[in-house]
Structure formats: C-alpha cells, structure tokens
Design a protein around this nucleic acid. Sequence first.
DNA 1: GTTCTAGAAC
DNA 2: GTTCTAGAAC
Length: 415
Amino acid sequence: MSMGSFRLRVTLEVIALYSTGRCQYVRVCLLVDVHEEDCASCAAVFNFQCFVFNYNTFSSRYITSTGEMPVCLLVSEDDAHKPIQLHHQQSVTLGRGPETKIKDKKCSRDQVELRADCNRGFITVKQLGVNPTIVDDVVVGKGNQVTIKPGQRLYMVNQQYPYTVKFTEDTSTPRSAADLRKPAKRAHQMSSEGNGEKIKSPANKTSTSHTDHNRMSDDSPPAKKTQPSGSEKSESAGHWSQGLKVSMQDPKMQVYKDDRVVVIKDKYPKARYHWLVLPWDSISSLKVLRSEHIELLKHMQRVGDQMVQQCPDAHKLSFRLGYHAIPSMSHVHLHVISQDFDSPCLKNKKHWNSFTTDYFVNSQDVIAMLEHDGKVTVKEGTSELLKLPLRCHLCHKEQPTIPKLKEHLKTHLPS
DNA sequence: GTTCTAGAAC
DNA sequence: GTTCTAGAAC
C-alpha cells in the first residue's frame, strides 16, 4: 500500500546542562517531510535526531521558545554554610561532612539522598542514615522518601540542622540561540540512546601532555592554587575533597561520556595513562553501593576497558581497573591506570601503595562483592597498607626510597 | 587529593 | 652539606 508523503510536526524539549551547573531548556519545532521512498517514518525521525544533536548546525529558526530552568538551592536555615545547588534530576547524597559542615556523629555521612525536580519545583528526600531525618515534624524513616517544596523545612537529623528549599531563576544563563551556540557555554552533547560519545582521542598520553595538563589544572579549581571563576564561585564544591564533582562537569577534562558515566583524565596522573570513570549519579563512596548499582559498575568497567582498547600503547602496556578502598575524593571513581607508573606526579609512599597493594581493589572484585554480599566491605587495617615498604609491583624487590623505586621501575619499561 | 617544610637520614 | 620523608595545612 502506498503511503504517499506527509508532513510530520515534531516538538522536542532539549534540556541543556552547562558545566557551571546551570540548566536551560529549549523548545524545538521542526516540520519534517516524510516521503514514501524514506521507507518508514523512523528513518526521518532518526535523521531528525542526528540533526538536533549536531549542535553546530542548530539554527535559531528552529527554536520556538527558550526559557530558564529554575536553579534549585538547599538553604541552611542556621546559615552554617552557603546554599548547596542541586542539579535537575541528579541524585546527591548529603550528611556529615565538609559540604554541610555537620560534625555530629549522629548524622551519617550519607544521611539523605536528594534529587531535585527543577521543572516541578520539589526535591525528593530519601533517608539513608539510621537516625531520623525530619520534614515538617514528620520522620521520614530509613529507606523511605518524601518530597519537600519551598516553605517546608527539612531537619537533617534529630530536629537539628534545618534546611529549606528554594527555586530561583538564573538570569546569567544565555538567552538567545546565538548565545547557546557559543562553544564555551555549549550544552554537553548527549546520546539519546545511551551510546557513548568520544570527546577527543583518549590517546592523550598523560605523561607527554603535562604542559597541557598543567594548563588545564590552572584553569580548573584545585584545592588551593586558584579560585573558581564567575558563577562557579557560588558552587558548594569548595572543599578539595569535592574536586572530582567539579572536574567531571568540565568539558575540558572529559574524554568520554554517555548517559550514565563520564571519563576524565586524572589531574595528577600516576602513570602514563590514568583515567577516572565516574557515574553521573552522585554516589559518594563504595560504602553506599548496593545490588542495584551492579549494572552501573559493570558499565563503568566496560567503558574503562574501552579506554584501554583505544589507547595507542595498549599493546605494550598493561592496565588495571579498580577502586581505592578508602578514597580521599568524594564521588565513586574507577581508576583505569597503566602499570608503568612512569609519572612525575607519583611522589610518595601513599601514592605507590594505594595502587600496588590491596588498597587498590579490582573492579571485578568490587562487582563480585556486590553480587555476593549486596554491599562492599573494606577489611580492617586497610589504611595501614599505605605505610608498607616500597616494593616493586612486578619483581617484588623492595626499594629504599621513592627516587630509587623510580629508577628501578625504568628497568621494567617496554623498549 | 596536593603543597609545604621541619627534621631525620645519609 | 643534600636528599628524602612524614605530617600539618589547605
């Protein structure tokens, strides 16, 4: 039966998430002529998707309206710290720690999981800690979740540490399609079907790109050297331990991303190749991982394997994929690191032992633990492993000092 | 996590 | 004297 041809009107709302944390939505209307020879409308729709996501060809005449998505702020009522910005539909775990400045041991480090819906103007609050989180005199209860809107009050734990939620317009967000096309503020391209996007060649060898790497370090907000510029100043990630959350959002740092994870080069690589695979979802540490995270961790490992396969030196270097048992930096991150350990950033015993003792837990072992026990446990005394004598990871010969160890490692380098 | 530096080790 | 480490500070 002949279909003839017809005109398809497509309206699509695109949510742009900027590296600064701001959101904007753009409504796109397109008229697509579908002809019989296109075989099926899906072909036209497919082409349409390619067109939309190829941002540089995105003409302003297709944009029928733009608007500011409200920014969600969690405000400390006792003014203990600056408001914490919550990104649209991104889970954030909060509790005792530098972000909230709460030191009360009754408050878990992972007391609540928050997820803001900036369109509809509420936050979903899930209590993770044992002690009660309270919303308007009602105990949430461990494992339960409630919503909180402006006007309501959240007590982090035991009628203490009051918070309110606020949604405000961010007037600094670019308003025109021309603004949107400026590369520095361009939204991250995201596959609609979860297919990954290689941003630039992973062949950026960390040891040979130190000039570039250091330049990037100077641009981005490290612990003390530089301050974030512009709107980034208002972000809550000021403490050094929150640095990964900032770096993962920085397009200059990203080498791969898809709908679940992002890969960045380690800012201080401990080997020729050293990447970090991070989930977009805010997962503070291995401790909060449960069975429901298994698929995500398997995906992180697949992406890590992919980084290795695409590495031009993969044939002559070996790699390990794993997690630090007790990481210093918040936000779960999978290390993908070549085993040459040929890097000026590897400077001390802690660096060495964190990658060459059981302090480094293989990705497969973490996944196996989750599959078997439903959680990840770290053995007692693991932190002591960082103080062990320096021992070559290949021939196990002990070395007296870091400089001697580095000299020794050269003997194992591929020719 | 890094940087800085006092003092131990050589 | 120099080299190197470990712990405080950030």
